[in-house]
Design a protein around this nucleic acid. Sequence first.
DNA 1: GGGAGAAACGTTATAACATAACAAAATTCA
DNA 2: TGAATTTTGTTATGTTATAACGTTTCTCCC
Lengths: 163, 163
Amino acid sequence: MAFPAARHDHSACIQAALDAAEQECRRRGARLTDIRRIVLELVWESHRPVGAYALLESLGRQGRSAAPPTVYRALDFLLAHGLIHRVTSRNGFIGCPHPGHAHGGQILLCAQCGMAAELDDPALDREIAQSAARLGFTVNRQTIEVEGHCPTCQAQARDDTPQ
Amino acid sequence: MAFPAARHDHSACIQAALDAAEQECRRRGARLTDIRRIVLELVWESHRPVGAYALLESLGRQGRSAAPPTVYRALDFLLAHGLIHRVTSRNGFIGCPHPGHAHGGQILLCAQCGMAAELDDPALDREIAQSAARLGFTVNRQTIEVEGHCPTCQAQARDDTPQ
DNA sequence: GGGAGAAACGTTATAACATAACAAAATTCA
DNA sequence: TGAATTTTGTTATGTTATAACGTTTCTCCC
Ligand SMILES: [Zn+2]
Ligand SMILES: [Zn+2]
Ligand SMILES: [Zn+2]
Ligand SMILES: [Zn+2]
């Protein structure tokens, strides 16, 4: 789950995500309808969290203008089947690069460029479960959102500060 | 940081929080004005995350009706000085039981009763920082919100399921 | 193929959360 | 006191999310 590089073949990201979604939906007997596929594709337009209303506008630009419930329903479906993750601290959504592969939401967010990546560290899940258990608390779901600086932006900062 | 028991002397919680806030503000040269103190007190009315508009209504019931910006400004102040934490997954706020004592937001949320508690496990912070570092990512801030079941609600579930 | 039932979608309206902008009041401090 | 700063009041609006209900599309069995 490397952090997305500044320049990479992003169309490949999108294609891979759509293929994985197709497969995961087949496996689950879920229907990846037109709208759902299009919304997923739009979520994947970047590696940044996208808001529901930004998706609405994107849909409009594609000539498929819609009302909020349409987008929210598609997002609910994609969330329910693990094809996207919600980024609560940004009121946005990002595509999941490996649906099906069970994992809690561990998300890295670059404060500079806004890019997001998944961390997906099982040791972290265990540590949280253990730590919570010490207080007698049992864990269902966990949301981890880490803000910081991605490798690319750090490198840039070094270049911009000659010294 | 034990999970708050179902029955406990909650007025003591409130008083302790207000005292700690007073002290922390003095230490920082910050002004804990009337509204700010009242909002803090209202946040502490329960151990559950409270929304800004719920606080607005509470203010109204106290005869201090106000507009949204008043509450949001008070919340911003309390956040800035570490007297409360934001619970992004609930669009709410909870009081911090130990302001001043630096700590990232690690919050446990009971899906049953809605109660919240802080986890505050430094090992967790380290694990995240290390795990992120392996991807070349440096951490600024982290939001950890864990949903599950508190000790009280687990005990209740056992009682309600005789078998 | 036809029809009952379920799932998905369209549409309108509204709820819930948050901030911009500017005026008035209170506080600080020289 | 009086200027500078901070805090609060007020109006308006922006942003995010859902309720409710009717229509269409799909599924599956006969
Ligand atoms: Zn990409
Ligand atoms: Zn970056
Ligand atoms: Zn208490
Ligand atoms: Zn509980």
